[in-house]
Simulated assay, not measured.
Amino acid sequence: MAGQIYKKMAFSLTYQKSIIPVSNEITDIVLSYVKQKTNGRPLEMAVDVGCGTGRYTLPLAPHFKKVLGLDISESQISVAKHVALANNVSYMVAAAENLPLKDASVDLVHAGLATHWFTIDTFVKEAVRVLKMGGCFATHAFVPIFELEYKHLSHDLNGVMKEVWDIFAKHLNNSVNEMFCQYQNVYEAIPLKDKEHITDILLKSPVFLPDVIGFLEIFYMYQDFKEKDAKKAEQFLKQTEERLREILGEEADSACMNMYMKHYCVLAYKQ
């Protein structure tokens, strides 16, 4: 099963270290939507489903009295608890398809970079069940492909990246396909009338070469490649780094590149 990789502690630690930083732009979209729909009323409870190591759980903390992070992976929850910095945040091991919450008890059901791993119809029904009247649902992720920009070298850098994506494409599964479709199926599964689907949000992140290689390493497609042929996968990643380093030349260790990725959000309001 694809999601099994997230249950390994070694991977969870690597994931926490190498995943791209939280997108403030996406967080702002979610929080602005919640504030608009709730007319500024006090917000009691948010649940972050598929919270992983808590990357998006903590940014919710200042806006709610309590935030609960849920994930099926004990190792991800363990790492999340270790890095937790907010007194009003707690974590629990639980499945997205069986939320351990009472009916109409939550102001926000949130899932960042996670919903593609869930049984979508079941998760959406659970989310609607636990939402209060006047509560919000928000899920978001990014298309699992990126482009690099650096001075006059962008074309050559992305020539290497195209070959990476061609190899990764051999290891796609249905979960990753949901990401490429920008959660269209998630949007359609939501039974609420008041909903929005925001696509093609192109965001830029500053990255150095180790960031790029570390990010590629935690892609599920690479992990699947590695599981099937560890030696070949590791050699491929090493060669990719060497080729990017050769293009960057003397600036390889100091070059701050721009990484562009498409993000998207699905938002809904329970009236």
Rank of each mutant, 00 (worst) to 15 (best):
S75V: 05
S205I: 15
I20L: 15
D107W: 02
S73N: 12
E234V: 04
I77F: 06
K17H: 10
C265F: 00
G52I: 04
D156E: 14
E163I: 05
Y150Q: 12
V89H: 00
L192P: 04
A84G: 07
K238V: 10
H82Y: 07
D28Q: 12
K102M: 05
L108D: 00
M9L: 15
A268I: 04
A84D: 08
Q76R: 04
D103S: 15
P191C: 06
V176W: 01
D224P: 02
T119P: 02
Q184P: 05
P59W: 10
A252D: 02
I29P: 00
A189W: 02
E246F: 13
F64I: 05
K125R: 11
V83D: 07
F11N: 06
V34D: 01
I72E: 11
K238N: 03
Y150S: 14
K232L: 14
K17I: 04
H263W: 15
P206M: 06
A2Q: 14
N88C: 12
A86F: 10
D211I: 09
L192D: 00
H110C: 06
I20N: 15
A94M: 01
Q16W: 09
Q235N: 11
L113C: 05
T38Q: 13
L43C: 14
D121R: 04
H152V: 14
V109I: 12
C256E: 14
L108M: 00
L202I: 01
A230N: 09
V79H: 06
D194A: 05
V109R: 05
S23H: 05
F11Q: 05
P206Q: 10
P59Y: 12
H140A: 12
A96S: 07
D211Y: 03
L60P: 05
P42V: 07
H155F: 13
A169K: 07
V186E: 08
D229V: 06
A46L: 00
S12A: 15
K132Q: 11
P21E: 03
E147G: 01
H263I: 07
A141G: 10
F123C: 00
I218W: 00
T240K: 01
S254H: 05
L172N: 13
Y150E: 06
V79P: 07
L216E: 00
G52T: 08
G54R: 00
D107S: 04
P42C: 08
V160D: 09
K195P: 06
P191I: 07
M259V: 11
L216C: 08
S205Y: 08
K170A: 15
M221L: 12
E196G: 02
M257H: 03
T240V: 11
D71L: 09
K66F: 13
K170C: 10
P59C: 06
L68Q: 01
Y183H: 10
I77V: 09
P59M: 01
W165D: 11
Y222R: 02
N39M: 12
T139E: 02
A138E: 08
E149K: 12
S90T: 15
E126I: 09
F236T: 06
E147T: 05
V109H: 00
V124T: 00
G159A: 04
Y33A: 10
L153V: 14
L13I: 08
D194F: 09
D156H: 14
V124Q: 03
V160K: 12
T38P: 02
